[in-house]
Simulated scan of single mutants.
Amino acid sequence: MTVHEGEQHTPNLGQRLNWLRAGVLGANDGIVSVASLLVGVAGATTDNAALLTAGIAGLVGGAISMALGEYVSVSSQRDSERALIAKESEELRTMPQEELDELTALYRERGLTVETARRVAEELTAHDALSAHLEVELGIDQDDLVNPWHAALSSAMAFTLGALLPLLAILLPPPGWRVPVTFVAVLLALALTGAVAARIGGSSPGRASLRLVAGGALALLATWLIGTLLGTTGVV
């Protein structure tokens, strides 16, 4: 069997880093989406009940949406991994010699000599042929497949934690300070999470933070202006 299109190498460490990065991005989504909603409402009214209702609705709806999206995405990934495992098992059953040759070739590509690669392939095949092929060829650990429920829960929690910041920032200060305090709190939080996400991904923290802060500021300003305009014209 050759390495087919779509069979990607995904080490466990890479998966864990991806989950961490997804958590940071989920928190960012909670911060920006709920903050934008609340600032828009605050531009139209200073009523605490309206702000609280909008904030809770945005938090709950966003968390459920994030969890559902993550569940569907990770479920698809897990189905793909299971299909690859089943396919590899069938090929090991029907063409064991070809699979042994392939495993030898994979170790040769990693720099081993022909003799050493063959010996390693034979010993691993004798011990657990399926695990050997899944690890070396596909980067899959059949005992550590992604869990869609864990992903959904993590995503919902990350979004909720992020959303709590603008909710508290808009409700706790006096009416005249709500929007400025929310702007400052949100932009500082975005700068921090942008830097964390960049560190995880090995990119520039400054550039990542700047992008998030600029995007967040634009979203907040746009929704605040819309809320102010609608509130002034008496539409709401």
Rank of each mutant, 00 (worst) to 15 (best):
A169F: 04
G176Y: 06
P175C: 01
T104Y: 01
E123Q: 15
L218N: 09
L100G: 07
L210M: 13
W149P: 00
A158H: 00
H133E: 02
G231D: 13
G231W: 13
V196K: 11
S204K: 14
A214T: 14
V184A: 13
L134H: 11
P166M: 11
A132Q: 02
W224V: 04
P166V: 12
W224S: 05
A208D: 14
L225I: 14
A191T: 09
V181P: 01
Q142N: 10
A217M: 12
T160Q: 00
Q142C: 03
L230C: 13
V120H: 05
L112C: 03
L171C: 06
G176W: 11
L218A: 15
T104D: 02
G216Y: 07
N147D: 14
G206V: 15
L103T: 02
T125K: 03
G231F: 12
T228W: 11
E109T: 13
L172T: 07
A151G: 13
A117Q: 06
E102M: 10
T182V: 01
P175L: 04
A197L: 14
Y107C: 00
V136N: 02
L212F: 12
H133K: 04
V186E: 14
G216H: 07
N147P: 04
L145V: 13
A151T: 11
T104R: 08
A105P: 04
A132E: 02
E109D: 14
S131A: 13
A214R: 12
V136Q: 08
F159Y: 14
L164H: 05
A152P: 06
L230H: 08
G162T: 07
A214Q: 07
R199H: 15
G202D: 11
R178N: 04
A151W: 11
T125H: 12
G111C: 08
N147Q: 06
L138S: 14
G215I: 07
A217W: 10
A195D: 12
L190C: 08
L167P: 12
A132L: 03
G234I: 14
F159E: 07
L187N: 05
S203Y: 12
A189D: 00
L221Q: 09
R119E: 15
G176F: 09
T193P: 07
